[in-house]
């Protein structure tokens, strides 16, 4: 297994998820349209400035008639373009990305719990169930406050700043935060979602290309905001399964300190 980061440069990073192309399509289309509008408009503007510059003996022409329809033509064109964007692009694509979620049974389901300034990831392990968590159990050795006495927690894997995802299968992420608002941003996947304390926000992504990707925090979260970085590892399903198997289950419950009653 030899995984590398894509080459990041100017312009959009490599598109590496199923919906990245849909988002890129919109970004490109809108920018072509913006560019065209600005150029046409700039030519007209320049023409007016030259044609109607002040010259001796040439007074300004007062308009006798006002054609509201004619002067609103650019508006109509922009409006038709926008209605098209809303109806055929924004609403359908938004509903596919943010409002429909893969069935947890068919997905690789994980918890991502953000904190100042790290991304903790909880994998449910072979039983497919997440162990219970409690804020009272949070400790430096147990950053997510996993309750080891819960049978479901026995095979859970907890990692910091490292997310593994298999190819060919969507990953369903339950996004949470322990302290302040963070934002889960993987530029190559075109995914971004705030992690809000007190909420469990589902997001999903299906990677299309094996490799390493960068996860950054996109919402100001304190002095370490720019240092909050995680590695996303996209592997073939076989490699992913092998990796998961190799992970040690979480330490036994006895190793946990008592709740000191903060």
């Amino acid at each position: 297994m030899n995984l590398n980061y894509p080459k990041y440069g100017w312009g959009l990073p490599v598109a590496a998820s199923t919906y990245a192309r849909d988002i890129d399509f919109g970004i490109r289309l809108i920018h072509y349209a913006m560019f065209a509008i600005f150029i046409l408009w700039g030519i007209f503007f320049t023409y007016l400035l030259i044609r109607y510059r002040r010259r001796d003996g040439v007074p300004a022409e007062r308009e006798h008639e006002h054609h509201p329809i004619k002067s609103l033509m650019p508006d109509l064109i922009v409006m038709v373009f926008e209605i098209g964007l809303i109806a055929f692009y924004a609403i359908p694509v938004w509903s596919r990305i943010k409002q429909t979620f893969p069935d947890p049974k068919d997905a690789n389901e994980i918890n991502v719990i953000a904190e100042q300034f790290a991304w903790n990831v909880q994998y449910p392990g072979p039983d497919g169930k997440f162990g219970k968590r409690s804020p009272d159990l949070v400790h430096f050795s147990n950053p997510i406050g996993l309750d080891r006495s819960d049978p479901a927690a026995k095979d859970d894997v907890v990692l910091a700043n490292e997310i593994h995802m298999p190819l060919g299968k969507p990953t369903l992420i339950h996004l949470m935060s322990k302290d302040v608002i963070h934002s889960f941003f993987i530029p190559s996947f075109r995914i971004k979602q705030d992690a809000v304390p007190g909420m469990d926000i589902p997001v999903w992504v299906q990677p299309t290309r094996p490799g390493l990707y960068e996860l950054s925090c996109a919402q100001l979260c304190g002095f370490g905001h720019s240092l909050m970085r995680a590695e996303v590892v996209v592997q073939t399903p076989a490699d992913y399964a092998a990796w998961l198997k190799s992970q040690e289950p979480a330490p036994a419950a006895a190793a946990q300190p008592q709740n000191l009653g903060f």
Binding site: L12, D22, I23, G26, I27, I30, H31, A33, M34, I37, F38, W41, E82, L85, I86, Y89, A90, V93, W94, I97, K98, S183, F185, P187, R190, I191, K192, A218, Q219
Partner: peptide
């Protein structure tokens, strides 16, 4: 102001804002 307004478009469209937000 035209540039300012036009570049508001990909930010006002929810789908493209997913990527461009907070950049």
């Amino acid at each position: 102001f035209g540039i300012g307004g036009l570049t508001g478009l990909p930010l006002g469209i929810s789908v493209t804002d997913i990527y461009l937000h907070d950049t």
